[in-house]
Each structure stands twice: as structure tokens, then as C-alpha cells.
């Protein structure tokens, strides 16, 4: 599309103090070269409506704060060029399937609660080694490939807003938490499948997903949660049929002792955490 002169933002506004339901507000601003939806919102906040609220931080598709419902699609506002939308009318609403806190700010807490409930972290017996490592957990490039794609998730919630199961079922954990649980289930350093299985076999698990595939199509990072969820089901079904044998979590490889630091490579800084 050729760049427009002006662009009209149709924004879904909601003020919890007003007792009024959300309503649309139109604001027209001049288009500037390279303007993203997030840039437009900033111009509106600075010049037209100081009370407009949304979340954003990195402005480069990394932090996952700026998921919004833009022209009917869940997208990252910072990652969406106005020209890419093919129209000078930009409708911006908060991500659906989450309660609205204010204007464009969705309440993502249910997503993060579901995420935490599915234990998205390494579970191993050698707790001491995890906190005070004496070496590294061994992992081959092939083992890494089994979960690398899923680890690119920035927790923006766009997949949750696109999923038709999420639209009607508040008990469903949703694509992000499930994909992140699978990311750890297939990590060769992890031994937690048996523990996570206790939750995944319940209604919090992947069973209400019937491959509408929207989560994967909507994901701005190419994470493909639908793939993770189907592979998770396969693992759970094969496990139930006793056809899946969980490999032992990988062993610790001690730090190499005979290596010498090159003089031009500085020491790593001390850990900050």
C-alpha cells in the first residue's frame, strides 16, 4: 500500500473508574514514514489523549508486552507497520480472551498462573548441582532442536487471543502455557515429565485443543504452539500405552581442566544473581 497522509486510529477505550462499558474512540493523526501501530499510539498519547493506556517496552518484538487486537488480528503493535495493514483505518482493541484492566491493557494473570501451574522449568533430582553447578548438562545439537523453536516464546498472549478453545473455555490452559510445558518435557536435561504429567492429564492439559492452528498462525515469533501441543499429546498417549520411555536426564559434564584462556578474551563478569 502507498503511504497514507493521515491515519485514523479507532481505539477501544475503557476506564474502570467510569462504570461505562468499553467504547470506540476515533483519532486521526498524520502518518510519518515507517510508523508502526505503537508509534501511532505514542503520538496520540503525546498530542491528543494523555489518558490512553497500553503496555509496551522494547519496541522491537522482544519483550512481549504490546500484544493487541489490530484490525481483527492479534499482533504486536511494535511489529506492525501501518502500511502493512493495507488501510488508513487502524482498529486497536485489547487482546480478547483476557479481561480488560484499562484501555488496551489486558489482564494476563490467568495466562501466567496457568504457565506456572505447568512447571515450565527444569525438574531434576540433583538440586544442589542446579544451584551450584560444577559443570554443564550435556546436550547434543539434535536434542536442542527438539525444543529450540518453542523456547523463542516471548509470552505476548497473541496465541491465547487467537485460540477458539480459549474463547469459550476458561479452564483451558491455552497454547502458550502448554507449549512451554512441552518445551521442558522434551528438554534432554529435564526429568520432570512424570511430575508435569499429573497436571497435563487433567482438564488443564492439551485435550481440549483440536488443532484450529490459529495459535501458530498468529504467533509473531514462529513458535508454533500447535505443533508443541500435538507432540505433547503424542507423548502422553504413548506414555499411557506404555510405549514411551522417558530418557534419563542428561549427565553433568565437568568443566574442562586442560583449557587455557586466550590472552585476548577477558574473564566473564561475576554472576549478578
Amino acid at each position: 500500500m502507498t503511504a497514507p497522509v493521515n491515519v485514523t486510529f479507532r481505539i477501544r477505550r475503557y476506564d474502570p473508574a467510569s462504570q461505562q462499558p468499553p467504547a470506540w474512540e476515533d483519532v486521526t493523526i498524520p502518518y510519518t514514514h515507517g510508523m508502526t501501530v505503537l508509534d501511532g499510539l505514542r503520538v496520540i498519547k503525546e498530542t491528543r489523549s494523555a489518558t490512553l493506556a497500553w503496555r509496551s517496552s522494547c519496541r522491537m518484538g522482544v519483550c512481549g508486552s504490546c500484544g493487541m487486537f489490530i484490525n481483527g488480528h492479534p499482533r504486536l503493535a511494535c511489529n506492525t507497520q501501518i502500511t502493512e495493514l493495507g488501510t488508513s483505518l487502524v482498529t486497536v482493541a485489547p487482546l480478547p480472551n483476557f479481561d480488560i484492566i484499562r484501555d488496551l491493557v489486558p489482564d494476563l494473570r490467568p495466562m501466567f498462573d496457568a504457565h506456572a501451574a505447568l512447571m515450565p522449568h527444569l525438574i531434576r533430582d540433583d538440586v544442589q548441582e542446579m544451584y551450584e553447578p560444577t559443570g554443564e548438562y550435556f546436550q547434543t545439537p539434535h536434542e536442542l532442536e527438539q525444543f529450540l523453536q518453542f523456547s523463542y516464546c516471548i509470552k505476548c498472549g497473541c496465541c491465547m487471543a487467537a485460540c477458539p478453545t480459549m474463547a469459550t473455555d476458561p479452564a483451558y490452559s491455552g497454547p502458550m502455557p502448554l507449549a512451554q510445558s512441552h518445551r521442558y518435557n522434551v528438554d534432554s536435561r529435564d526429568g520432570g515429565f512424570g511430575t508435569r504429567k499429573q497436571v497435563l492429564a487433567t482438564e488443564k492439559g492439551p485435550w481440549k485443543c483440536h488443532y484450529a492452528g490459529e495459535c501458530s498462525q498468529a504467533c509473531p515469533k514462529g513458535v508454533d504452539p500447535a505443533r508443541a501441543i500435538q507432540l505433547m499429546k503424542r507423548q502422553l498417549v504413548f506414555d499411557y500405552l506404555r510405549l514411551y520411555k522417558q530418557p534419563c536426564p542428561s549427565k553433568v559434564v565437568p568443566k574442562p581442566t586442560e583449557m587455557k584462556r586466550r590472552a585476548d578474551v577477558p574473564e566473564a563478569p561475576a554472576p549478578t544473581l
Partner: peptide
């Protein structure tokens, strides 16, 4: 608590991509 914004059955018919 926030204003409810779940799409409901409309979310089966459209949305996402």
C-alpha cells in the same frame, strides 16, 4: 477485576488469522 472480554462462541466463527 477487569472488564470481561472473552470472545465466546464468536471466537469460533472468526478472529485469530
Amino acid at each position: 477485576k477487569g472488564h470481561p472480554n472473552r470472545l465466546g462462541v464468536w471466537g469460533w466463527l472468526g478472529g485469530g488469522t
